[in-house]
Design a protein around this nucleic acid. Sequence first.
DNA 1: CAAAAAATACGTGGCAGCACGTAGGCATAC
DNA 2: GTATGCCTACGTGCTGCCACGTATTTTTTG
Lengths: 222, 222
Amino acid sequence: MSAFAVPGTVINLLLVDDHPMIVEGIRQMLLPEPDLQVVAQANGGEQALELLETHPHVQVVLLDLSMPGMSGIELARAIRANWPDVRVLALSMFHDHATVAEVLEAGGAGYVLKTATCIELSTAIRQVAAGRTYFSQDVADTLLESQQIAGDLKAARLPAITRREREILQLVAREHSNLEIAEALFISERTVETHRRNLLAKTNSKSVVGLIQYAIRHNLLA
Amino acid sequence: MSAFAVPGTVINLLLVDDHPMIVEGIRQMLLPEPDLQVVAQANGGEQALELLETHPHVQVVLLDLSMPGMSGIELARAIRANWPDVRVLALSMFHDHATVAEVLEAGGAGYVLKTATCIELSTAIRQVAAGRTYFSQDVADTLLESQQIAGDLKAARLPAITRREREILQLVAREHSNLEIAEALFISERTVETHRRNLLAKTNSKSVVGLIQYAIRHNLLA
DNA sequence: CAAAAAATACGTGGCAGCACGTAGGCATAC
DNA sequence: GTATGCCTACGTGCTGCCACGTATTTTTTG
C-alpha cells in the first residue's frame, strides 16, 4: 500500500467540520474535480476517528481547526498516531503564529484558509496527497515571520498548552479575575499567576489581549 | 410591488459572504428548494450594494456579519436606508449579546448561526420573506438574556460603535497600550481612555477581555 | 439653525496584572 | 534511578487599566 497518491488516480477524502454549510460548500467546490472524491464526512473529531476505522481508503483528511469538543489539533495528533500514512490538511479562518505552529507540530501537511477559492483548495489537496505540503499565501507569510522570531529564540520549542493551563485560560476568557479563578479551582492566586505567565510565554503574547485571541481561535469558549 | 413574498411564489435571494466555501455551501443547501432562488452573490458589502441596484427583484439578503471592509452591520444599515422593502437575514458564527443587539438595531429580520442545517436555513428564509422574523435557538436564548439585562438598564439603547472607537479597538486588539495608541493617533492618553471606557459600555464587557472578543467576532483584525 | 452625537481632554485614585526570581512535590518517561 | 515536565506556591514592586466625574469643541443630522 503506497503512502502517497499517484498522479492520475483518485484521491479519497474525509471532510471534518462542524458547520454543515462549510461541508456542503467544499463538496460542491470539489464536485467538478473527478480525481478528488469525498468518501466520508464528520461533524466532530470523535466521529472522524470512527470513520477512519471503517474507511481505510482515505488518503487525505481535510479538517477544520475550531470545533467544539475535540479540537482540530487534537484530531490531527490522533490521526498522526494511528494512521501515519493519512495526510492532514488543516482548514482555518485564522493564521496566527501559535496556531500555524501547532498544526505543523501536530504533523499537518498543509494549511488552507477558509477564504480559499475552489482552485486553491483542489491544488492544496493534490499537493498534500502527493506527499508535498501546501500553505495559503498568508499562512506562508506567517511562517516566514515566525521563522525570524524562531531564529532569535534559537528553535525555542514552545511546548503545547497543558490541560491545567487551558482550564485557566478558559476562565480568563470568561472575564474572571485571577482571584476568582483561584477560588474556583481551589488553588492559590499565585499559582494562577504562574500559569498565566506561562500562557503568555507559550502564546507569545504581551498581555491578556493575545491570550484571548488564542482562546477564541482555538475555540476554548463554548 | 408587494413588500413580502406570497406563499407559493419564488423568493429571490442575494448572498453576501467573503468565503467562497460558505457561498457554495449555501447555494448547494438551497438547490433542492425550488422556491428559493439565489439570483446574485457578492463577496463584500460594496459589491452587494451594486448588485442590489441591478437586481430589483431581490427580496431577501442573506449576509455574513464578519467581512473585511464594510461590516455586515454597516451593510444591513445601508440596505435598510435604501431598500426598506428588502429583508435582511444575518448569518454569523457567534451569538453574543452585543452582536445580536446590533443586528436588530440595524433592522435585521433574522439571525441564523452558521451551524444551521439545510432545513433551518430554508425555514429562516421563508419566515423573513413572509415578513416575520427568525432566530436560531441559541440566538433566541441570547435575546432572552439580554432582555433581562435590558430590563435593568431600562431600555438602555446601546449606540453603535463609532469609527474612531473602532480604530482604537483595533489598536487595543493589536496589543498596544493606551499610551502607544495615543501617540500613534496624536491624541491624549486621556482621550484613548475615554474611548476605551465607552467601548466597554457599548460592548457590555467588564474588561479588555470582552473587548477583544468583540473585535475578533467582528473581524476587526486583518 | 438647532439639536444630537462624536471626538477631544483633564484629575484622582485603587486594584489587578505582570515582571522577575525562586522552589518543593509529584508523576511519568527514558 | 534520574531526568523531565507539570502543578503548585511565595514576595516585591511597578505600571497600566479602569471607575467616576466633568467639560469643551467639532461634526453630523434633522
